[in-house]
Design a protein around this nucleic acid. Structure first.
Length: 898
RNA sequence: GCGCGCAUAGUUCAGUUGGUUAGAACGCUAUCUUCACACGGUAGAGGUCACAGGUUCGAAUCCUGUUGCGCGCACCA
């Protein structure tokens, strides 16, 4: 073998990875054909925010999807992975406004709606979708020809269609309500977009005097700044402290307005002072009370959270938090401040704006959710849709059963504009797919479209079918919808997963997907959430540069516990890097011996007689690996997938099989060489295919290096390995028995190695002679079948199998379950140390036998445990009794020598 | 308050329907640069499976309770 044909000593992923991705993409490996006769398998990507960049969360999420897609593709399905992004209304608009301010010093109002949208589209084309390009670096096999954006014409018309249909069904309505308002983004948001944070604040106790001068009522509030909007004070009707006072007038301090004392069951007499100031325009509960008691609704704030003129000249223009301070100061001055208590409570924050939400009374559009929730709940309850891990079903159920209407209008410009039109003359509201030419009621030709846009999730919830151009009956829609697997984070179970199920059932009558896999949340190695402020979120592209994409992918699934948070650190990627290097070196080793065996694809034609015990063992293990890996993939057990792959190639193939092959390969033209090479290549070819979904780059590279695929082919086109049928395995002698015998042999080898280690005899130094005395005839037969390999693995110049052995001189003894190995070591062996070691081993066996005896001596165990279990315990007892006898025999022998 | 989850080796975690002498990776100790790999090999130390009960012939595994930690939902100003 000439030097230039050798692989580099260590695997360097950089070149390999860039080469293969463009190879796959150029040859259209990822493109799905709706006309294909193959059974389809579809995944739609959870569309990332168009302004976003790749995070480790995306890496995990998309690695899992890619594993599924590649696995199913190799398994023979027509796979379709639809990528794309969503328009992220608030985030994008905010970003573009910031850029506009910075570059041109302009606001969106300076540009006007139309110009601003043009500007935003231009920005999107230029900077948007970076994340989609980045996905390629981790190997995502998306069908890029099908990339979609939620504001594409097709998807936009789906949004219009849905809005109109829901309106016509009475499931979309416009209403004046208290909604969650983000003063920073100046838009309504949905309940789901509010995050509650615990906050240390105060409970201010204010004295509100009776109008008749007969004293005062003390109210407690966390929000003094809203008091200018108070239109009542409420107490519990059963509260005796206020008996007879209901209906009396109080004078609102500072403002001077007279407000009534009302009785309402909502008020908890035990909390605070038992009296609540009622601000119907600024609190959801107060709003309800306001309705019940016919109170006025006084809005005292602008949409940016600053105070308006109705708050009074003193406060007008102040920000709400500045106003809070000012109100407290003023109340103190007026001697209306009774006391201030420390108070820790939950404050709702706008997820996007990260500022406290302001409950705001305004007119918005809502979706009536209860009718949609019912079938969506049923689809999960009856198992048509399955969640992994299953426990998320409970969360889903709870939300569905307590569902509230969804506020879908947003006071933004970037998004799908609401297709509702108001007649400029008669005020009639028309909802239509096309802008009406004239008012259907009065015939007036001038109508004004609702200025608001729809929540981004109102387009995302249609994603599984809108990407296929629903409501048009496209071939893609017919072929690839319903989709199969959804891989997403549990944090958007309500935002997205639940709503997709509702939308899909409502509009297509079908479930959107069969299986939902919820990924782990990624934290840093101290368990903290990744965040910009902590600067603890590594850039995946840097990680790929350092370790390789395969390494990152493999590490992710290796460290991802099922259904729990991942603790990630860059150093952990060494797991994947080392793993890739290990496999690289297997191929490097193999290629030194020449090209792949011509008939590597199968073991057809071979029989038990052609194979060494170790060949049979690795075939059996490979076969078990094929079966368990396939099962793990089917069950979405990705962590298990990584462990199975790792265990097989490292601990079985490299540690034992490859070592076992060395003596055969090193021998001059050993007759077995061809067969062993074929088995070796068969295992390697099979393994590379099994590994491909997890580590696509290095596997395709090595598959080609081995010559398993032609230049223009990809491992991705290869068939997924199928387990061999039982009779075929039996014919090759790859049986459970052969596995058990091999394991016993390995135990014996380890025992000899322990001896070497004890006497510090390096592997490089061969032992002159080893004598093995098998414990039984079967063991003797087994060992005699391949003495050469055993000799080489033990590092012995001479290896003899004997029925009995009496060492003539100082001798190390390794007692295994299968046999005892004698290693004559004149001048090295320390008799005392040997005795101590054997005595320790004796102790261990005695202890173990005692535990077995305790079990087997228990009549109830023997009577009630399954027969196989009892039989297994008996077999162990027999085995260890025999082993104990041999250890004791040896101790005796040493005793007489001493 | 309601719901969910977690607690196993120094660390991070496996442990599938109860039955293996409780495993792996990293770290640690010793040793080896032998011609696949030091991103490696070999050997070794290290755990009363949070605690208390219970079910069972048998519990890390199932049940109940306790403690600690995390998450979600809902909140009384």
């Amino acid at each position: 073998m000439s030097d230039e044909q050798l692989l580099a000593k260590a695997y360097d992923p950089a070149d390999v990875e860039s080469k293969w991705y463009s190879f796959w993409e150029d040859r259209g490996s990822f493109h799905a054909d709706p006309a294909s006769p193959k059974q389809p398998y579809t995944i739609v990507i959870p569309p990332p925010n168009v302004t976003g960049i790749l995070t480790l969360g995306h890496v995990l999420n998309n690695t899992l999807q890619d594993i599924l897609i590649r696995f199913e593709k190799m398994r023979g399905r027509e796979t379709c992975w639809v990528p794309g992004t969503d328009h992220a209304g608030i985030a994008t608009q905010t970003k573009v406004e910031a850029a506009l301010k910075k570059e041109l010093g302009l606001t969106r109002y300076d540009l006007g709606r139309e110009k601003f949208l043009e500007h935003t589209w231009a920005w999107k084309e230029k900077y948007g979708g970076a994340i989609i390009r980045q996905l390629r670096t981790i190997g995502s096999s998306c069908d890029w020809q099908r990339e979609r954006f939620t504001m594409d014409p097709g998807l936009s018309s789906a949004v219009q269609e849905v809005f109109v249909r829901l309106f016509e069904k009475g499931l979309v309505y416009k209403g004046r309500r208290i909604i969650n308002w983000c003063p920073k983004s100046r838009t309504a948001i949905s309940d789901e977009e509010v995050e509650y944070k615990e906050q240390r604040g105060h409970l201010w106790h204010f004295r509100y005097p009776y109008a008749d001068g007969s004293g005062y009522v003390v109210v407690a509030t966390t929000r003094p700044e809203t008091m200018m909007g108070d239109t009542a004070v409420a107490v519990n009707p059963k509260d005796e402290r206020y008996a007879g006072k209901i209906g009396q007038k109080l004078v609102l301090p500072i403002v001077g307005r007279e407000i009534p004392l009302v009785a309402d069951d909502f008020v908890d007499p035990a909390f605070g002072t038992g009296a609540v100031k009622v601000t119907p325009a600024h609190d959801p509960n107060d709003y309800e009370m306001g309705l019940r008691h016919n109170l006025p609704f006084v809005n005292i704030m602008h949409d940016d959270g600053s105070m308006n003129d109705d708050a009074g000249a003193e406060f007008s223009g102040l920000d709400r938090f500045a106003c809070r301070k000012a109100v407290v100061a003023r109340m103190k001055e007026l001697d209306r401040l009774e006391k201030i208590e420390d108070y820790t409570h939950q404050v709702g924050y706008s997820q996007r704006g990260d500022v406290p939400v302001e409950p705001r009374l305004s007119e918005q559009w809502f979706v009536r959710m209860a009718p949609l929730a019912e079938p969506a709940l049923a689809a999960v309850n009856d198992g048509r849709i399955r969640f992994y891990p299953e426990r998320w079903v409970k969360t889903y159920r709870h939300w569905m059963e307590n569902i509230k209407d969804w506020c879908i209008s947003r006071q933004l410009w970037w998004g799908h504009r609401i297709p509702a039109y108001t007649c400029d003359r008669c005020g009639e509201l028309t909802v239509a797919r096309e802008a009406p030419a004239a008012c259907p009621k009065c015939g007036h030709a001038s109508l004004t479209q609702d200025p608001d846009v729809l929540d981004t999730w109102f387009s995302s919830w249609l994603w599984p079918f809108s990407v296929f151009d629903w409501p048009r009956e496209t071939p893609e829609l017919k072929r690839f919808f319903p989709t199969h697997s959804l891989v997403t984070g549990p944090d958007i179970i309500f935002f997205w997963v639940a709503r997709m199920i509702m939308a899909s059932l409502e509009f297509t009558g079908q479930i959107p997907f069969r299986d939902v896999f919820f990924t782990s949340i990624i934290r840093d190695d101290q368990g903290r959430k990744m965040s910009k402020s902590l600067n603890n979120s590594p850039d995946p592209l840097e990680v790929v540069k350092t370790y390789g994409a395969d390494a990152l992918r493999f590490t992710m699934i290796y460290i991802a516990p099922v259904g729990q948070d991942i603790r990630y650190s860059n150093e952990k990627c060494e797991i994947g890097r080392n793993f890739a290097n290990k496999i690289w070196n297997v191929v490097r080793f193999r290629l030194r011996l020449g090209p792949a065996a011509a008939n590597w694809q199968s073991l057809d034609g071979l029989t038990s007689a052609d194979l060494r015990p170790d060949d049979q063992w690795i075939i059996a293990r490979l076969n078990a690996t094929v079966a368990s890996l396939t099962a793990a993939l089917d069950a979405f057990q990705f962590n298990e997938v990584s462990k199975i792959l790792y265990e097989f190639i490292w601990n079985e193939f490299c540690d034992w099989y490859l070592e076992s092959c060395k003596p055969v390969f090193n021998a001059e033209k050993a007759p077995r060489q061809a067969v062993v090479l074929r088995v070796f290549d068969y295992c390697l070819g099979t393994f590379l295919r099994l590994l491909h979904p997890a580590m696509p780059f290095v596997t395709d590279e090595l598959y080609h290096q081995m010559g398993f695929a032609a230049d223009q082919e990809s491992i991705l086109d290869a068939d997924w390995p199928a387990p061999m049928p039982g009779p075929a395995l039996a014919g090759l002698g790859a049986t459970d028995d052969c596995v058990a015998l091999a394991q016993a042999k390995f135990e014996l080898v380890r025992a000899v190695r322990t001896l070497r280690a004890n006497y510090q005899i390096p592997t490089s130094r061969s032992l002159a002679e080893i004598v093995v005395v098998p414990a039984a005839a079967a063991a003797a037969d087994y060992l005699r079948r391949d003495l050469d390999t055993l000799k080489a693995i033990l590092g012995a110049d001479d290896l003899r199998i004997r029925d009995a052995y009496q060492a003539s001189g100082p001798c190390g003894v390794a007692v295994g379950g299968m046999a005892t190995a004698y290693v004559p070591l004149a001048g090295v062996v320390d008799l005392k140390a040997e005795c101590e070691r054997l005595a320790k081993q004796e102790d261990e066996i005695v202890k173990y036998l005692a535990s077995l005896q305790a079990k087997l001596g228990n009549e109830k165990f023997v009577a009630r445990a399954p027969v196989e279990v009892v039989a297994a315990e008996r077999a162990k007892q027999a085995e260890f009794e025999a082993k104990l006898a041999r250890v004791r025999e040896q101790l005796t022998a040493f005793g007489t020598q001493a």
